[in-house]
Design a protein around this nucleic acid. Sequence first.
DNA 1: ACTTTTGAATAAAGTACAATATTCTAATAT
DNA 2: ATATTAGAATATTGTACTTTATTCAAAAGT
Lengths: 198, 198
Amino acid sequence: MKKNSVSPIPLNPTPLKNTSSADTKASGRGGARPGAGRPAGQGQYGEPTKPVRLPVSMIDEVMDYVATGGRQSLPLFSCAVAAGFPSPADDHLEGSLDLNDYLVKHPAATFFVRVSGDSMIKAGIHENDILVVDRSLEPRHGKVIIAALDGQLTVKRLHHKSGKTMLMPENDRYAPIVVSDEASMVIWGVVTNVIHSV
Amino acid sequence: MKKNSVSPIPLNPTPLKNTSSADTKASGRGGARPGAGRPAGQGQYGEPTKPVRLPVSMIDEVMDYVATGGRQSLPLFSCAVAAGFPSPADDHLEGSLDLNDYLVKHPAATFFVRVSGDSMIKAGIHENDILVVDRSLEPRHGKVIIAALDGQLTVKRLHHKSGKTMLMPENDRYAPIVVSDEASMVIWGVVTNVIHSV
DNA sequence: ACTTTTGAATAAAGTACAATATTCTAATAT
DNA sequence: ATATTAGAATATTGTACTTTATTCAAAAGT
């Protein structure tokens, strides 16, 4: 929690020279007193800090990350029917969610694909949607997959039926594609989520 | 780039005691030679590091962040027709994308809502989808919004027509809701994206 | 000649320290 | 009595230094 954002610019670090008369013999002012001193929690972050070693290439990025409050874990509500009376927000709160955590289970094996065409409209996949694709999942029968076919990427539902492999669109205006030569098709990954703009 | 992930556990930090006979007079072994010493770039990160001060509450999180390679900016491909011949991945590469950046424009004003019901099915909003909602956008006519009505959250398209406010479902099996008393309805925010599991 | 041992060399990693910033109040001035 | 100022107190912050880890090759052993 950031209590205040005091910039580390010195307000007036060098004490002003004594007003007028000369020899200011350093007489004792101030004195021992409890409660003096800079109060805790007044730093940049409003809490204690510790030095940590980081790879130089990531320091800027990490500083950004910290400045923006770390993980973007935002609250998740639900539409479910509330307890019975007009309710405050808490009644709907399900918890909090970080999009990357939720959508990207295998970061090293995940990529995105922007959709063109409407051949999978019945699967809730629209033109310009972004698909979250996981390479590490096995492309089983019935999964929606991304395949490279004739040098083009396509989204289809994978069907294995009586030894034949087919790519099924989910739009009545399109016909299934029978994959005659499996070697000509490369499956890039399994679609796990669709991101659609309203 | 992580060259190797050497754990910082000492392999054998304390040199074994001299094998047998006593007084090993420290005779000079080794000696000055160029090229000796631990090679650079063999550390945990494969690059130089610097100590940086971080708030204690975020150190663990930041270490995770760094360990997972920082921002989850993953490649974005497109389905567009390729140049003409069976193409390598690069032909489809549009760039890279970070989900939080892409979906959350106003972190402080954004939250998620899990959908129940199918009243907005024609807008591509299905049961159990997660909606990205931005409180900071103005709920204009025609926008899909989240509203609290009778203590329940609902997703509907907002309509202002001849001074009347209506909440329009996008499913023929539901009827529009006329908002007679505006005070009883609170608009929580504008839906910007839908996240759908396939 | 080949293998093993051992200390030198040097980068990495963690921590202690010095310098800085900020606040409080007694002492001084008005 | 009230306002101002200087110094004490103490947290923060950056970095220097110590400790640890790792590799190289000379010396010793086989």
